[in-house]
């Protein structure tokens, strides 16, 4: 099991945070613009899929989108009421996806990926970013570029300890590597 990448989008589709954990072969040739295009694709896909899943869900079910599996990997998704979306790409692992991923004591519809993403939101994002004294919801440095100095004066998520806490949490998960 491997975590490939994690993206956090606001409700308008702007990237608030992005990090790749595995370097692909093309990563040297892929420039920041291509990666930003790819993130737009991911957000658009999540947006449309949520609507599609919503119209296929029978009356009593919740219309949330949890995961999308392709032949190459699985995209796990978590959306908050305020429209913040956390998207995490992992490997396909049938055992983790069916049996091992059930959190003990929780009902069968909740996989531990959902629990993990919820934890990332409620205990890491809210603690480190939302409760930061510098945080202003509409004034966040978006589409972060690697290794570029932030001179816009906007609130930068890189100035909080969100990233280090996120890394520590993910590394503690049995499915991280």
């Amino acid at each position: 099991m491997t975590v490939h990448a994690i993206h956090i989008f606001d409700r308008k589709g702007k990237t608030l945070f992005t990090k790749r954990y595995t370097s692909s072969k093309q990563s040297s040739t892929q420039d920041a613009e291509q990666l930003s295009e790819q993130r737009k694709l991911i957000f658009g896909m999540l947006f449309s899929l949520r609507e599609l899943v919503g119209s296929l869900t029978p009356g009593n079910g919740s219309p949330a989108l949890k995961s999308v599996r392709t032949g190459a990997g699985t995209l796990h998704c978590f959306e908050t009421i305020s429209g913040l979306r956390i998207a995490m790409y992992t490997n396909n692992n049938p055992i983790m996806n069916t049996i091992g991923a059930r959190a003990p004591g929780a009902d069968n519809t909740k996989t531990s990926f959902q629990t993990a993403l919820k934890y990332i939101y409620s205990d890491i994002w809210v603690e480190c970013v939302v409760r930061s004294p510098l945080y202003r919801p509409e004034d966040i440095q978006v589409d972060p570029v690697e290794g570029k100095e932030n001179k816009s004066g906007r609130f930068d998520i890189k100035s909080t300890n969100f990233e280090s806490k996120l890394d520590a949490y993910l590394a503690s998960m049995p499915w991280f590597r």
Partner: peptide, 20 residues
């Protein structure tokens, strides 16, 4: 291409009240 030789794409979607 996936193991069946078809173009790769969505194999499964899990939602709150539906599985596709």
């Amino acid at each position: 291409k996936n193991s069946n030789g078809a173009q790769d794409g969505i194999e499964q979607i899990e939602g709150g009240g539906v599985i596709l």
